[in-house]
Design a protein around this nucleic acid. Sequence first.
DNA 1: CCATATCCGGACGATATCGTCCGGATATGG
DNA 2: CCATATCCGGACGATATCGTCCGGATATGG
Lengths: 197, 197
Amino acid sequence: MREEQQQSDVPARRREPRRDALDNRDRVLAAAAVAVRREGTAVPMATIAADAGVGVGTVYRHYPSREALLNALTHRSLRLVVAAAERAASHDGPGIECVRSFLHQSIEHGTELVLPMHGGPALPDEEALALRADIRRTLTSILKRGERDGTIRSDATSADIVIFGAMITQPLPHIANWKTTALRQVVIYLDGLSPRS
Amino acid sequence: MREEQQQSDVPARRREPRRDALDNRDRVLAAAAVAVRREGTAVPMATIAADAGVGVGTVYRHYPSREALLNALTHRSLRLVVAAAERAASHDGPGIECVRSFLHQSIEHGTELVLPMHGGPALPDEEALALRADIRRTLTSILKRGERDGTIRSDATSADIVIFGAMITQPLPHIANWKTTALRQVVIYLDGLSPRS
DNA sequence: CCATATCCGGACGATATCGTCCGGATATGG
DNA sequence: CCATATCCGGACGATATCGTCCGGATATGG
């Protein structure tokens, strides 16, 4: 009663995923980020599919539920923030310039980011915690450096930077050049981060 | 063929709206603000009705469409901001303390505010423009005062304050005490608003 | 090049939300 | 207190979105 089955006790070697499938997966995730930031987390899946140029079936195949999709979006955002923090930390200049770099990168990412503040899920899972820890560690080292070289006040914490970074990525749809506006807030905030005279 | 009609060429004197109707109207608007900030602008009308403790019919009677409701929410928010600015301006202390008061009041309003940054409509109508002008005027006078008494840098604009105020009213659902976090950002920002030494 | 595992699009039944409408309840003016 | 203008709740038909499923297309390994 088990003829015609492949040898089923050996976990069948699966092919690598097809290239087109991986491409579509990326396209869906990128389109979903923008769509969620534009229309909210209840944006119809059909809209995301259309924006990504695929059928709804493809969206559901890669992300079986809206929850799974939103979780993937937030993980992706956390990875983007980790990368931004590490790039900022690799700068040569004083600590405050690393912070500036981090905030500028956050602005550049713009509507690609879907974090809890933007309506994304809270994600208490292990991977998210690890990514958050990464961000905290890297930013803390930047702040320490700034404190040593006298460019950052000593009571600043990584949470301050993370929160402000998320705040300025709120797009201001009715303002034509919101990037300029965001950069302006960064200037003032960085002055606030300098040691008190 | 016009007997039994009241004299119809005189614009019929309407009764005042009933008290219960006005109460319901307010309850709906307040519940809608919180619901929209919690679930986005696509939140089901039935949810808003349930939160307000009324039937859906009552919501649609006062606000015939979702668009009308969102517009009313944003008008209400603008009125709240106007009031906050004027209360801040009536303080006796130096200019920077007026700004602090304004930002603290914004935090207190929290999820009552539904502005374009929070997903609300852009509202280019006449009343909204007048309210925005009010806000700009009042904040500008505060900044001027601060510049004169030496507590605020001279290049700060009312737009800076408005935008930052809207930014810190983004709630951070995954953070237990987001008010504390917001107040912390205000401290740093206000230091950034002080004149450079 | 061929066999086939993998993937795709989108139709379709199920479910959710919309916005109206009306029988009954209630506040108001006199 | 009474007549009635005003208002209310929620049922209901219309419409929108969900998530599955399968016939056909396509990339891959050999």
